[in-house]
Write a protein that binds this DNA or RNA. Structure first.
Lengths: 216, 216
DNA sequence: CGGCGTGGTTAATGAGCGTTAACAGATCCC
DNA sequence: GGGATCTGTTAACGCTCATTAACCACGCCG
């Protein structure tokens, strides 16, 4: 709660390791992963620190050697998601543009990227807008800012394709499409779905269909 | 937690009053309304009973004259939403059918009904899939059952319109459209939106566009 | 060898909070 | 008038749970 974060050392180590061949994950990474899963399953307040500890084989207060507190774990998770979403979106836009793509291609790439994220990180998607309120003011502001930039990235692209729609209307439509794409956590646990690729294809079509109706 | 519910008497009274001209709301209704708002704002665990009491002008434990406990309030809210959604959906299907409408008309009416609900009861929409996990097993099962029936209602109709799609695919698409329609809580508080009717029209078009892409 | 940073442990602390107890003012009705 | 019923109140209880204290083992490095 008080100090900045005791995470810097571990961060550097983890980053260094990421450059080499795949290694066993850091304690810190294990904790974050398990915390994300548990928070998504039963809510931030619904899971105790002892449980998180048990999930990684240490018990209770041992977590405080890695995080300043329970809040810090949630904060790092949410900031991480929002940041990766935004960074991924920017990369995809840039890549599509240097490849000579127009707004349609950029939008297609944004949709694909968001779908990948939604399918690979269901737990984080769930947390994303479920537990935002539990963050400290400063963290919440940061996350909100990252989210807003991500939304605006989409809005800019969609507006080029549908200049007829108001900016507010476009923004509402983008939010609605996020809601559509983020619906994956509501689909029965393992796979009432045909398979990952089929689900991705379905979501892709639905999203394009929805946005296509903007100026229809 | 122990007794069935001390709600029956109040329920009957409230139902009787509902048949007359509009009267001031029951204490019970006031409490439910405020609890819904607070739970949606800060989460079930994030709000204390004293707060709920204060929101209706009584303080803390006074609530226990109207509800068996905090859990009971949430349970009644969630069961109520799911039930009203399902009942509304069935009514609309029946009405559209007796009016001679085909699947397209029924679906249109289902969409309109869901949009009304999403715009009128944002708080309940939020609670709907945020706090399901906090319910007692029996209540959770009941809510899940009502939700499932509502989903199946949609699935049946959509399948008639798009017989080419798998049942699982259709179900996933329906969930996705719910995600789209339920996105209203994410749109800035008062009205970054043009207005209620414009928002409804937008959501209607997006939903039809998404589902239209199912067999496109 | 010897100290020190790292990553654990268990026990204690302390706050928050749902719930219950005990009590009291209306209102209604016989 | 006087119990019964409703609807409140404040005070106390008890439990959960995040956090901190105090202590310890190991690995590294000079």
């Amino acid at each position: 709660m008080t100090s900045e974060n005791d995470s810097t050392a571990d961060h550097q180590r983890a980053r260094a390791r990421a450059l080499m061949a795949a290694t066993a994950p850091t304690r810190r990474e294990q904790i974050l992963k398990q915390a994300a899963r548990l928070f998504a399953e039963r809510g931030f307040h619904g899971v105790g620190v002892d449980e998180i500890g048990a999930a990684v084989g240490i018990s209770g207060p041992g977590l405080y050697r890695h995080f300043a507190g329970k809040d810090a774990m949630l904060a790092e998770l949410l900031v991480g998601i929002s940041g990766r979403l935004l960074a991924g979106g920017r990369e995809r836009r840039a890549a599509a543009e240097v490849a000579g793509g127009g707004p349609a291609e950029v939008l297609g790439s944004l949709i694909d990227g968001h779908i990948d994220f939604a399918l690979d990180d269901r737990a984080l998607i769930t947390l994303h807008d479920r537990e935002l309120g539990q963050l400290r003011d400063s963290d919440r502001k940061l996350v909100r800012s990252l989210q807003r930039q991500y939304v605006e990235l989409w809005v800019e692209v969609v507006r080029k394709l549908h200049p007829g729609a108001t900016e507010d209307t476009t923004r509402a439509a983008v939010h609605a499409v996020f809601g559509l794409l983020n619906s994956t956590p509501h689909l029965g646990r393992p796979g009432a779905l045909p398979g990952r690729e089929a689900t991705a294809a379905l979501l892709r079509r639905l999203a394009h269909g929805a946005l296509g109706a903007l100026s229809g």
